[in-house]
Deep mutational scan, measured.
Amino acid sequence: WIARINAAVRAYGLNYSTFINGLKKAGIELDRKILADMAVRDPQAFEQVVNKVKEALQV
Rank of each mutant, 00 (worst) to 15 (best):
K25V: 10
R41T: 13
A3M: 04
M38P: 01
A45C: 05
Q44P: 12
E55V: 13
E29I: 13
G27Q: 11
V40S: 13
D37W: 12
N6W: 04
D42A: 08
A45T: 11
V50T: 04
G22Q: 02
E47S: 09
N21G: 08
L14I: 08
V53A: 13
I20V: 08
P43R: 09
A26Q: 07
N51M: 13
R10L: 09
A56R: 05
G27K: 12
A8C: 03
D31W: 06
P43A: 07
Y12K: 03
A39L: 07
A39M: 10
G27M: 08
D37C: 08
N21F: 14
A3P: 05
A26L: 08
R32E: 15
L57Y: 07
Q44N: 11
N15M: 07
K52C: 08
N21A: 15
A56W: 07
V49T: 07
Q48D: 09
Q48Y: 09
Y12F: 12
V50E: 01
A3I: 06
K24L: 13
Q58S: 14
W1C: 15
I20D: 09
Y16E: 02
A11N: 09
V49M: 09
A11P: 15
L23H: 01
A36D: 03
A56S: 08
P43Q: 05
T18Q: 11
G13L: 02
I28T: 03
G13V: 01
Y12C: 02
Q44F: 13
A39G: 04
N15P: 04
L30N: 06
L57I: 12
E29R: 14
V50P: 00
M38S: 03
E55K: 12
E47K: 10
V9T: 03
N6T: 15
V59M: 09
Q58K: 10
N51L: 13
W1Y: 15
R32A: 13
G22A: 04
D42S: 11
K24D: 10
Y16H: 03
K54L: 11
V49D: 00
I20Q: 05
D31P: 09
I5H: 00
L23D: 00
N15E: 05
I28G: 05
Y12R: 04
L23Y: 06
F19M: 03
T18S: 11
M38V: 05
I5Y: 02
V9C: 05
E55W: 13
A39K: 02
A11Y: 06
N15G: 06
A8T: 03
A7G: 04
Q44G: 09
E55P: 02
V59D: 12
L57Q: 05
E29H: 14
K24S: 09
N21T: 13
R32V: 15
V53G: 01
N15K: 08
I34F: 12
I5N: 00
G27A: 09
S17Y: 15
P43E: 06
V40E: 15
L23C: 05
A3D: 07
E47P: 01
L14G: 01
F46Y: 01
L30K: 07
K24E: 07
F19W: 03
I20H: 04
R4C: 12
K25W: 12
Q58P: 10
L30G: 07
D42I: 06
